[in-house]
């Protein structure tokens, strides 16, 4: 049979829109493979992280607050089914607060935990950053997660002249990102009293300016007042500017090279996410993807043609051709 409608474009367009809408209704959710990441982040909570030499929204904030804000943002950008664990670093080792947990369902908890990171959690005043990184690598390897280590690289006490402590693991075995936090110009370290109130800045005599454990450097004999037994490091006060701090990028790069991690300076949240993505080992997960929008938007497009474009064209055509001509056509 043949209906008059069959000869009309509008009917076919409507039928196509109907089919597409039905497709949108009944199309199954497609299971797509997606990347998810397992990450464990360690945040340096030593005193130098309280230095306010970075800015957030135009206001100066401490390196720790800056890290916290960027880390929260980073977790928010992790795809669902990724896992995130959190830990802290002080003295010479890291401490795991919680092992990696799924980020989407537990987001509020993770967000609160990052927000509560405080330098008062630190259990000692030392800051052996290199040893901390070495320890963090061991822990991250155990947890089978990509490492994120946020630090300003400020070693306190300073490294001995012999350089970095030896790394016992296999470089590159654990993937990770060493993130440098802080400004590049030297600023004084803040000073705190016994109750944790800030009382000014440290002076050169407040901190160890030189690591004097172990053997003295070979050139020590040329120092003023040197004596092999009573003053093996010389007897004049040295000032290596250890009471001033900046992000120690050279040192962090050296640590990264020693351990096979990647180094990046903390800037924006997006950049951090990309730098992390470049080193992280993604884990393939299946996730239901909603593809209903494709047939539905096609159906919508067709309806716009049917109800908008076609009538407009018809009207334009109508105006062009004169009514008398039409009459003649109908009544020849």
């Amino acid at each position: 049979m043949s209906r008059p409608a069959f000869r009309e474009a509008r009917f076919w367009l409507l039928a196509a829109a109907l089919l597409l809408t039905l497709a949108a209704l009944f199309v199954p959710r497609v299971m797509l493979k997606r990347d998810a990441y397992d990450a464990v982040a360690f945040v340096d909570l030593t005193a130098s992280m309280n230095t306010r030499d970075v800015s957030l929204d135009g206001a100066p904030v401490s390196r720790l607050d800056f890290t916290k804000q960027r880390l929260k943002n980073f977790v928010a950008r992790m795809p669902c089914q990724s896992k995130f664990g959190l830990g802290i670093f002080t003295a010479r080792r890291v401490f795991v607060l919680f092992e990696p947990i799924e980020v989407c369902r537990n987001f509020s908890s993770i967000d609160a935990a990052i927000g509560e990171l405080d330098w008062r959690m630190a259990w000692e005043g030392d800051s052996y950053v290199t040893l901390g990184v070495h320890d963090a690598i061991a822990v991250a390897g155990e947890l089978n997660a990509t490492l994120l280590f946020f630090t300003d690289g400020h070693e306190a006490p300073p490294l001995p002249w012999t350089g970095l402590p030896a790394f016992e693991g296999k470089p590159g075995d654990v993937r990770g990102l060493l993130v440098g936090v802080g400004g590049k110009t030297l600023v004084p370290l803040p000073k705190f009293d016994d109750s944790g109130r800030e009382t000014g800045t440290l002076t050169a005599s407040d901190v160890l300016q030189e690591n004097r454990s172990g053997l003295p450097p070979p050139d020590a004999s040329s120092r003023p007042g040197w004596h092999p037994k009573w003053a093996p490091f010389g007897d004049m006060p040295v000032n290596n500017n250890e009471h001033m701090t900046s992000v120690k990028e050279d040192h962090l790069n050296a640590v990264a090279a020693q351990t096979g991690l990647a180094y990046a300076r903390l800037t924006g949240a997006h950049a951090l996410h990309q730098q992390f993505g470049a080193v992280a080992q993604p884990r393939s997960v299946t996730a239901a993807a909603d593809i209903r929008a494709y047939p539905a938007s096609l159906a919508l497009l067709i309806l716009v043609v049917v109800f908008g474009v076609l009538p407009l064209r018809e009207r334009a055509a109508h105006r062009r051709s004169h009514a008398p001509a039409r009459l003649r056509e109908a009544h020849p």
Partner: peptide, 27 residues
């Protein structure tokens, strides 16, 4: 230990709680 440490706020996120309990076996 030497200092108090906030780990996770009160919540009904079961697997977050389990993840934090897992961590007590860490050194």
């Amino acid at each position: 230990s030497t200092a108090p440490m906030f780990v996770l706020p009160l919540s009904d996120h079961r697997d977050a709680t389990l993840g934090a309990i897992d961590a007590i076996e860490q050194p």
